[in-house]
């Protein structure tokens, strides 16, 4: 049995809204310890992963291992129909296995229940490597304010929706996008006196080409947290991470473009 309490605008809802146009199904694994959501876009160019420990999820109840595929559009449409003041609970029970129920209860105790079919998640199941493996693959990381990151992603995506580059050295971080009528180039210098807001940490310089559209899609999710951390690699997808609550986190991966 699983019960997920949701609120309009919470991280779970935010992630679902963000990936609405990229993917049809969110793969959710729930245990007594918490929830893990993974979604990959239909072209397999981007992945989003949400980890929500049970202690950060007020009212979370799960007494067994549950792996389900949630139809994103159905869920988002239902949440959009609800009122901001509604208490929303996503339920997967033993008696109605194969379906999810989304219950909305108003402050006056009026209720609306949506029931929809789960999607077979086995077809699209994939595995992300663990944190230690990931860390070993990245030559550089940059911590920066999420609002600033979102502004840049928007700017890059507006300019060129196909070709963007992030470069990092131990002195600066640069973003570049190529548009049809011009280019945009953004540079951040590492300030020695203040590394709490902006901090570069590189083993060697990295330059990574990617499609800015995907980064822009995810960037709004990261404003749920004050700061984002970018992980750059010469051989692996760009990874962007932010913390949610005490121990939760969101990670997004964007596949690189490389020389043939």
């Amino acid at each position: 049995m699983l019960e997920l309490p949701l609120v309009k605008g919470d991280p779970f809802h935010h992630v679902m809204e963000a990936i609405l146009d990229l993917s049809d199904v969110a793969h959710v694994v729930c245990t007594t310890r918490g929830l893990n959501l993974l979604a990959v876009d239909t072209k397999h160019l981007a992945i989003v992963s949400l980890l929500f420990p049970a202690e950060d999820f007020k009212g979370y109840t799960c007494d067994e291992y549950i792996s389900i595929g949630i139809p994103i559009r159905d869920l988002v449409n239902a949440i959009r129909c609800g009122d901001d003041k509604d208490t929303i609970t996503l339920k997967v029970g033993e008696e109605n296995f194969g379906t999810i129920t989304l219950s909305f209860v108003s402050p006056e105790k009026n209720t609306v229940d949506y029931e929809f079919r789960l999607v077979d998640a086995k077809l699209e199941r994939f595995r992300l490597p663990d944190r230690h493996f990931l860390r070993s693959k990245y030559q550089g990381s940059v911590k920066m304010p999420s609002v600033e990151f979102r502004r840049i992603c928007k700017c890059l995506s507006n300019f060129g929706d196909e070709y963007g580059v992030i470069s990092v050295t131990d002195e600066d971080l640069t973003y570049f996008a190529k548009g049809t009528d011009g280019d945009v180039y953004v540079e951040y210098k590492q300030q020695e006196e203040d590394t709490t807001i902006f901090k570069i940490d590189v083993r060697e310089p990295v330059r990574l080409a990617f499609n800015p559209k995907y980064l822009n899609t995810f960037a709004k999710v990261f404003t749920l947290s004050g700061q984002v951390k970018l992980f750059l690699s010469k051989t692996h997808p760009l990874m962007v991470e932010c913390k949610i609550g005490q121990k939760g986190r969101i990670r997004c991966f964007v596949a690189p473009k490389v020389e043939p």
Partner: peptide, 14 residues
């Protein structure tokens, strides 16, 4: 011209 890699190049899909 750059080649766009897909996630299969990095992570295992069943």
């Amino acid at each position: 011209v750059l080649t766009q890699l897909r996630m299969e190049a990095f992570y295992s899909f069943n």
